[in-house]
Design a protein around this nucleic acid. Structure first.
Lengths: 253, 253
DNA sequence: GAGTGGTCTAGACCACCGT
DNA sequence: CGGTGGTCTAGACCACTCT
């Protein structure tokens, strides 16, 4: 039985721009990705070989290879030596990148609002200090917020940050996401280690999230690092499980 | 203030083997990783430049670059153009790769045992069929298991697989992990899309997991694909939240 | 044997950072 | 300015699969 052959419309790579600040591998990957997501290249179908694409686009094989590898790492493509490269079957899920809850909601077209519940500078206890790679007793900013989506409470967010962020204004924290504020100060989140679990909600959370006391909440503890590898933020969050969940896609190397 | 300089013991890369079936980039990466995890290269410290390592090891820069990039993707290193490459601060967490619960437990030195609760061949309903990319009505194997760790119940695992796996023996399902059985049949899991949430447990789950009725459970729905991109398994699992949680580390690209 | 992806090489130019 | 990582090239050899 013959595998589906790949014949792509010529326009697919029509607007590649060698002078663009975007790297060529990125341009090729994004065009391939949209062709896959739109079904132009069908699920289960084979794509052309690396050499064939390289020759067609007049781009070297390593560059094409990198574009394809990026999509393999995203879980859209699968490769087999001696066979070729195929599109993964089944609908492709848009995976959660490293984003904040605020950005997740905004991107879904949902208006997110925030209520600031706590905003104080404390001396770091041993646990928080160790997580943030600070000496115990150093000042840390502690904030606690409630996040609503379209008027419905979704999560209670509890965060600790190094003392130098103590000047984050309460007003600004109600108007934007934390990562957004940090980015505007030149601090980009690069790495996040997180642990996801569940427990019964506290009485406090029950009233904030408008749940029955003792009802389940989804919890996430997240430690984030910036582009220099420095610990920036420790978050302990509780989510209303009917209104939020975590999606990821894993790819074996 | 001077940044910590990197002077590595000469033995670090002593046993690199060009004739090994393991690629050079993999050998270099694993040695760098253990040097970081063991503290030989301290947290926050800078490593040598790509060119310096390449010259020292007599390996080309692209190969060294790939080794380093693998560790960046794992969240162990951070790179800045014009500056160099540094180790991320804070203790490095061993992140969850694409593994099954059974393997997770085994690797932690915990003895995992399984009780088979259900084992039947059904006609796929529309939902299951769509997820597995099968026509509705096709036969599918449905299994339900309870997983114990050191004699304590940890999770209830509910799975659907394409009908061709209907010959998986009940006995073998009690003695090994599902992925392990599939691998021994030549089916390797390559991609997993998963959604993690929480809810109150059912009465059935309460007795199986030895919990109070209505207590919170951590849930995961996972759809896995093999190396050819074909959907292999749909899992719906419920975990005792005091005995299991999910850890991941995300890296921005 | 022909074609595929997996690895590796030896260069090149660039953008960016520190001094 | 020299050094760093980011991108790109044009080859090469290999292991593997299908015919």
């Amino acid at each position: 039985m013959a595998l589906e052959e790949a014949h792509w419309p010529e326009e697919l790579f029509a607007d590649l721009d060698r002078t663009s600040p975007l790297p060529m591998y990125s341009q090729v990957a994004s065009r391939l990705e949209s062709a896959i997501r739109s079904g132009v290249i069908p699920a289960g179908g084979r794509i052309e070989s690396e050499m064939a694409i390289a020759e067609r686009l007049q781009i070297s094989r390593p560059t094409i290879r990198r574009a394809i590898q990026d999509l393999v790492d995203k879980g859209l493509l699968v490769r087999q030596r001696g066979i070729g490269t195929q599109v993964v079957q089944g609908q492709v899920e848009r995976s959660v990148e490293l984003t904040s809850l605020f950005e997740d909601l905004s991107q879904a077209g949902i208006s997110a609002t925030t209520t600031l519940l706590d905003h104080e500078v404390l001396e770091a206890d041993e646990d928080v200090a160790a997580r943030l790679s600070l000496p115990a007793g150093d000042p840390v900013l502690h904030i606690r917020r409630r996040r609503m989506a379209d008027g419905v409470p979704v999560a209670v967010l509890d965060n600790h940050l190094p003392g130098e962020f103590a000047d984050l204004l309460p007003a600004s924290l109600e108007g934007a996401g934390l990562y957004q504020l940090l980015r505007s100060r030149g601090v980009g989140i690069r790495i996040a280690q997180q642990r996801i679990g569940a427990r019964a909600c506290t009485p406090d959370e029950a009233s904030l999230l408008e749940m029955e006391p003792g009802a389940p909440v989804l919890t996430m503890e997240r430690l984030t690092y910036d582009h220099t590898g420095r610990a920036i933020e420790l978050g302990r969050h509780a989510y209303h499980p009917d209104r939020y969940s975590f999606s990821t896609t894993l790819v074996a190397r």
